[in-house]
Amino acid sequence: MRPFAYDRPDTAAAAVAAVADRPDAAFLGGGTNLVDHLRLGIADPGLLVDVTSLTSTEIVDIDGGLRIGAGVTNADLAADPRVRARLPVLAAALLSGASGQLRNMATTGGNPLQRTRCPYFQDPASACNKRVPGSGCAAIGGATRNHAILGASEHCIATHPSDMAVALAALDTQVRILGPDGGRTLAFTDLHRLPGDTPEQDTELAHGELITAIDVSYPRGRHAYRKVRDRASYAFALVSVAAVLDVVDGTVLDARIALGGVAHTPWRAVRAEDTLRGGPATEEAFAAAAEAELADARPQPGFDGGNAFKIPLARRTLTATLRQTTPRETA
């Protein structure tokens, strides 16, 4: 940890300009991830630009959904009556994440941008391609219980830790971004990157780009968020499932599904959705959807026993969550 400058500009545009100007600058939101990383010596910014009062802390109605200011805390978002009534998958995901104290600090803009979670990434003495590109990946063959079964590469097997992001990935979500050259909008499912051979880049945001708001549409159907973890609270997901299923007369009209704890990104379960859409909402169909989604899953061996168990666990949890989103008489 080394000394850094701290700046609190008056506007979001000024904050963007300040970060864009310096390659070693970083935005500071709730700080629940970045401050830890500063202390651990794995983030080393020369300038922190505090944006906590620069983005909206409002949740406003937009056509068919909500615009959530980037400054809205996870706690406030989970408590919002519209979120609870119309986006229960998001409320449930938020409340399953972290702790009450952390949810009071974490923000809508910051939560999806927390770094992937891996103990070897967090230990400066371990090799990590994310921290030091080209240095290798100590996690491979290490303790891999919390690591990826989908979309991993030989360079990185870390998983994204956010619960909120899993719900947002399942929903129709747009990310509103302010950059040095103006604003743009990105589909939430395009925000995060698989590791490939550049695991140091977690997202598609360019340096200096700031999330200012997140737009979420209300989906049709029943919602469920199921998080499976090693203790009842305050633990990262081994596997989590966000699902919204629109079932009419026993037929799946639409399915929105995402998995957490399994990949470098919140994992939109496109194959499962395709398998289900237009078909019957039956136990067999759910199992087939889960089978399809996990068809390419690969376990990571590890001295801790590895994570092969997560493949059947993900199948079972996905099937069970789909069952949960379906009225009993049709299941």
Binding site: P119, Y120, D123, A125, S126, G142, A143
Partner: peptide, 9 residues
């Protein structure tokens, strides 16, 4: 970690 002698968690 038997490779390094470090407690990973």
């Amino acid at each position: 970690d038997p490779r390094t002698g470090a407690v990973v968690n």
